[in-house]
Simulated assay, not measured.
Amino acid sequence: MKIEVSRPVGQRAAHKIIRDVRHMFRLDDDLQEFYRLMMGDPEFAWIAAQGAGRLLRSPTVFEDLVKMICTTNCSWALTEKMVSGLVNELGTAADDGRKSFPSAAAMDTPSAEFYRDKIRAGYRSPYLKELAQRVASGELDVESWLTTGASLADLMKQIKSVKGVGDYAAENLLKLIGRYDGLALDSWTRAQFAKARNRGRVASDKKILRYYARFDSWRGLALWCDMTHDWLDPQNVAKW
């Protein structure tokens, strides 16, 4: 992997860039247990063979959490519009003009009305303002979720204490911090499961959970790899 920067950087900045890239690409995640489990099932052995399962994430939990809130109850196009708006309006510009995702402090500066009128965040507007305020003030340390020893139930409770975060958003965020117990079912994954595993028929959430239950604490990652298997088809990869 080669990292290109827009200008020369010092040792401290270079260290941070490398750390962030390793975090984003999950280069230090230990998936050996997951791969051993996948190798034990002929239909899932391809995951271990291809080294799949390292889900791309943002440099910070805060960024992933904000983006997750922006995926709920809306189309992907609207999600992209909201996130692009946050970057364009509040992000810090680099030498080449591109902007970074805003920090909690930057997002705490404008009012909830800004998020409603400028970002078009709708009902999420006060939630984004409150989240930024809690994180910027130090009241809520979302980065600690990466290393916490809290039980799954306690961690889910902490994540869902953030307004705008329900089971779907919380379980998706869990995958990005290395906890794969939840399935994070939505309309897309339910439709994919029906097509791939249930002969085109709609399946209940309980049935989907039973199907992946054999993978225990890795079931969420197994489901995601299973539902996105065709993304790795060479013809689909060529379209990226």
Rank of each mutant, 00 (worst) to 15 (best):
Met1Leu: 13
Lys2Trp: 11
Ile3Asn: 01
Val5Glu: 00
Ser6Pro: 08
Arg7Gly: 00
Arg7Lys: 15
Pro8Val: 08
Arg12Pro: 00
Arg12His: 12
Ala13Tyr: 05
Ala14Met: 14
Lys16Thr: 13
Ile17Asn: 04
Ile18Ala: 11
Val21Ser: 00
Arg22Ile: 06
Arg22Gly: 01
Met24Ser: 09
Gln32Trp: 07
Arg36Glu: 14
Arg36Trp: 06
Asp41Phe: 12
Asp41Lys: 13
Asp41Ala: 06
Pro42Ser: 09
Glu43Lys: 15
Phe44Trp: 13
Ala45Arg: 15
Trp46Arg: 01
Ala49Thr: 12
Leu55Pro: 01
Glu63Trp: 05
Asp64Phe: 06
Leu65Ser: 05
Val66Gln: 05
Val66Gly: 04
Met68Gly: 07
Met68Arg: 10
Met68Trp: 00
Thr72Asn: 08
Cys74Leu: 13
Cys74Glu: 01
Cys74Met: 13
Trp76Ala: 05
Thr79Gly: 01
Thr79Lys: 10
Glu80Trp: 12
Val83Cys: 13
Val87Leu: 03
Val87Pro: 08
Val87His: 05
Glu89Lys: 15
Leu90His: 04
Leu90Gly: 07
Gly91Ile: 09
Ala93Leu: 06
Asp96Ile: 07
Ser100Cys: 10
Pro102Glu: 02
Pro102Val: 07
Ser103Tyr: 12
Ala105Glu: 15
Asp108His: 15
Asp108Tyr: 11
Asp108Ile: 02
Asp108Ala: 15
Thr109Ala: 14
Pro110Asn: 04
Ser111Phe: 08
Ala112Lys: 09
Glu113Arg: 15
Tyr115Ala: 06
Tyr115Arg: 05
Arg116Tyr: 13
Arg116Ile: 06
Lys118Cys: 12
Lys118Ser: 11
Ile119Asn: 01
Arg120Trp: 03
Gly122Gln: 06
Tyr123Leu: 13
Tyr123Ile: 12
Tyr123Thr: 04
Glu130Gln: 15
Leu131Ser: 08
Val135Glu: 04
Glu139Leu: 10
Glu139Lys: 15
Leu140Asn: 06
Glu143Ser: 04
Ser144Phe: 02
Ser144Leu: 08
Thr148Cys: 11
Gly149Phe: 07
Gly149Ser: 03
Leu155Phe: 10
Met156Cys: 05
Ile159Gly: 03
Gly166Ala: 13
Gly166Asn: 06
Gly166Cys: 08
Tyr168Leu: 11
Tyr168Asp: 00
Ala169Gln: 12
Leu173Thr: 03
Leu174Gly: 02
Leu174Ser: 09
Leu176Tyr: 10
Gly178Met: 07
Gly178Phe: 08
Arg179Pro: 08
Arg179Asp: 02
Gly182Ala: 05
Asp186Ile: 10
Ser187Gly: 10
Thr189Gln: 01
Arg190Met: 13
Ala191Glu: 13
Phe193Asn: 00
Ala196Phe: 13
Gly200Met: 05
Arg201Tyr: 01
Val202Trp: 02
Ile208Pro: 00
Leu209Lys: 14
Arg210Thr: 11
Tyr211Ala: 05
Tyr212Cys: 02
Arg214Cys: 03
Asp216Leu: 07
Trp218His: 11
Trp218Lys: 03
Arg219Val: 09
Gly220Ser: 00
Gly220Gln: 01
Asp226Trp: 10
Thr228Leu: 09
Asp230Phe: 11
Leu232Arg: 15
Asn236Glu: 14
Val237Tyr: 02
Trp240Cys: 03
